[in-house]
Design a protein around this nucleic acid. Structure first.
Lengths: 197, 197
DNA sequence: GCTCATTCGAGACGTCACGTCTCGGAATAA
DNA sequence: TTATTCCGAGACGTGACGTCTCGAATGAGC
């Protein structure tokens, strides 16, 4: 229950090697694709030993999950902007911007795919990525509810399922990414009867 | 360009073996999980040779895709029921019923995961499954549009993205499947301002 | 400065499924 | 009958897996 579990003896973990491994994994994924990404390949490219990778990450997907946080800006805007619509718009723009980062879409696809195969990684992916994004959007919806600025019958959980569902379905099952017209359509749908234009 | 490409000589393909392979693949997936599903294992369980499997299916995912069509009812209702809401309701109920088939959810997850890793299979999965479901829902929306029974600004493509996005996101990223309350919420959202109750 | 725990790069090791290939036999149309 | 195709069975080389071992480097406690 104490914060300091280990007195910390011996040689310390090399931050330089850690970054080299994460960078190697991210770059290799874009070059050869996730299926041909191997722990051995990551270690070789990073100039590290296999055991060094296995010591800190259980699977190649975990390496990539951490690399994603390093290579792309995962922050999402949740600042109070006065209206539900404005905050929703900012959230959707942030999400679209994330997808525009080079290499992010293939990595996200690979991580979601791996989460279907490995139940343990699934939980880590949930905790380390999915629920953080969900929390941001749910914050926005709940603030709108407190403000009286939200459609009736729209729960935060359902709104999150809808928005993330659309984003992920586009990534996983189509070639079309989130565009300005999609953002417009979502805002129109989720706001109380928009009254046309 | 002709329909009959081959004069058909020699021994004919064994339908019995085909069914044994599909059944073995489906059952093995529920027993050991997709990652531990192997072509060798499928052939062994089916009492077939490896080459027999490789001759007819390029990957284990293709075997499973065909097995799904054999083991579950993939039909969706698109019959004209007079109103958009009634047809949407029927569609959603059919979709929920499909997920309730034993073993279907794990198989769907595996297929979508494989589609992220293998671009060729991705296309076959699109053509053999995804676009058929999309077409059914788009038919419903377009009929509603012709009927004047559809919310303005709601295109068939966007409606399909929303509905399938929700369904797939639930399957892939959460543990919650589509329930009656979800069906109600979608109907309320997609119909022209429901006017509360 | 000495000790000892820990991480480091490097690579050997047995295991397992991959996808290809070969074999002899069975089925079927010409 | 003959040519062709599919069948079950399994051998084969390949490559990544995850574990293990090694000697060197590092760094905190004494």
């Amino acid at each position: 229950m104490t914060g300091a579990t280990t007195p910390a003896r011996g040689r310390k973990r090399s931050e330089q090697t850690r970054l080299a491994i994460l960078t190697a994994a991210y770059e290799l994924t874009t070059e050869v694709g996730y299926p041909d990404l191997t722990i051995e390949g990551i270690a070789a490219r990073a100039g590290a030993g296999k055991q060094t990778v296995y010591r800190w990450w259980p699977t190649k997907a975990d390496v990539l999950l951490e690399a994603l946080a390093l290579k792309a800006d995962l922050n999402v805007s949740t600042a109070d902007q006065g209206s539900f619509d404005a905050e929703l718009d900012a959230f959707l723009r942030d999400s679209a911007a994330l997808m525009a980062f080079p290499g992010v879409v293939p990595v996200l696809r690979s991580l979601m795919a791996e989460a279907q195969r490995d139940a343990d990684f699934r939980r880590r992916f949930q905790d380390g990525f999915l629920i953080k994004r969900r929390a941001a959007l749910e914050t926005i919806v709940e603030r709108a509810a407190a403000r009286g600025d939200k459609p009736a019958h729209l729960t935060a959980a359902f709104a999150a399922d809808l928005v993330f569902g659309l984003i992920w379905y586009r990534v996983l099952a189509t070639e079309r990414l989130l565009g300005q017209d999609d953002i417009t359509a979502i805002r129109r749908l989720l706001n109380e009867h928009p009254g046309e234009e």
